[in-house]
Design a protein around this nucleic acid. Structure first.
Lengths: 213, 213
DNA sequence: TGTACATCAGTGAACGCGCGTTCACTGATGTAC
DNA sequence: TGTACATCAGTGAACGCGCGTTCACTGATGTAC
């Protein structure tokens, strides 16, 4: 597809403007990632071609393929964290906050399928590329959850227990829902997975509640 | 690894005993799948070599690679379905049955990581290989869940609603939990995902309950 | 019992492919004098 | 203002690799006469 229709060669950047190509490579990689749905299906050649440049040029800006893909995801991951935190704004009370977090998490996953898969299904080996494991997407998403759950337990709104384990249960539900929609929705259209969003969220919240709604 | 240390050539099968090799190929493929964790990481060459045979021999028994992998998973999938149904035996009441189903689902997923990934993360394209989509692992697992949920709602034990949507919520939780443990457990050992099993299951069941436990 | 023959499981060599990556290079851009 | 030069973004060709798959073949096994 994109490999078959080579882009016209772009002009070479001015001195000091090498980063323009760098950004364009990241954009192209992200677009291809979203189209193809997996890191393996996106080649250095395809990325270079989409930008109108030859494959070796990529190595002027990235150490290797994993480095490039990791950067693509890093950019979006920062957005992801920000989206979760932003979702809490204006929400009062743990139940409302949990609902907001769940919706924000799912919305982001469904809107960035390729990045979601890469970040959360281990297609790019992220170890060694990040100094502190608590800055990984998983840890971070979970930490925001844990904070809300912790507060909810303290207020007696959520059933008492280990906040990090309750948060794991919530994370499993939203992660599972995103995964199912991304991988099964087209295979199993009769299930109407997308239509179950509200029920899924409600059940997740009810699962940690002290009293029924 | 396995490619580097070729197995001694096996003797050729007797007339009519070609299926022996077929079974051995399936066994070897399954073992490699479990070791490597993904369909792409298991080559026809590696499978043939593990059995002590040359790659073209594989095509005497399978149309192509996807065909072989699909058969590997089919064998286990039948077991999977049986495990879910067997888990219901001796369990009285929807709550106990749901708990049993969840445990059986998760246990199977954690014990067959490679097959689980292949069946539920769309690594092998399964469409066209199966006539009726309701026989796919996803549909089947969900159907067992729906039946239990349906009965629970009829008895007033579970909150009223659309059984298939409530079942989707439950499926999302157990699927998400299995996925997280399989892909994140080694990256994020400090989270103790495995230790959260009971809490996850309890929250899932509580999520659909009419009255709190 | 012995021999010619059909069957069929498996082989060896090769195919074309796309991949990530390297390396010596080109040629435009900017700088120093 | 003009020229020699350093810089540096990007190129072209090639590397070695592993892959799925094909194809003409070999040679052991069983059968018919």
């Amino acid at each position: 597809m994109s490999e078959a229709t080579p882009q016209p060669r772009r002009g070479r950047a001015r001195r000091g403007e090498g980063d323009l190509l760098r950004d364009d490579l990241l954009d192209a990689a992200e677009k291809l990632l979203a189209e193809r749905g997996s890191a393996k299906a996106v080649s250095i050649r395809a990325i270079a071609n989409a930008v109108g440049v030859t494959p070796p040029s990529v190595y002027l800006h990235f150490a290797d393929k994993d480095d490039l893909l990791f950067e693509v995801c890093s950019r979006r991951f920062i957005e992801f964290g920000a989206a979760l935190v932003a979702a809490l704004e204006g929400r009062e009370g743990p139940v409302s906050q949990l609902d907001a977090l769940g919706r924000a998490y799912i919305a982001w996953g469904l809107e960035h399928p390729a990045q979601y898969r890469i970040l959360f299904t281990g297609q790019v080996d992220v170890r060694g590329r990040v100094e502190d494991p608590t800055t990984l997407p998983g840890s971070m998403a979970l930490q925001v959850l844990i904070d809300v759950v912790d507060r909810g337990m303290a207020e007696g709104v959520f059933a008492p227990g280990d906040p990090s384990r309750a948060a794991t249960a919530l994370w499993a539900t939203v992660h599972g829902y995103v995964s199912l929609v991304l991988t099964e929705d087209e295979h199993l259209p009769h299930l109407d997975l997308r239509g179950a969003l509200d029920v899924v969220l409600l059940a997740a919240v009810r699962g940690v509640l002290a009293q029924p709604v």
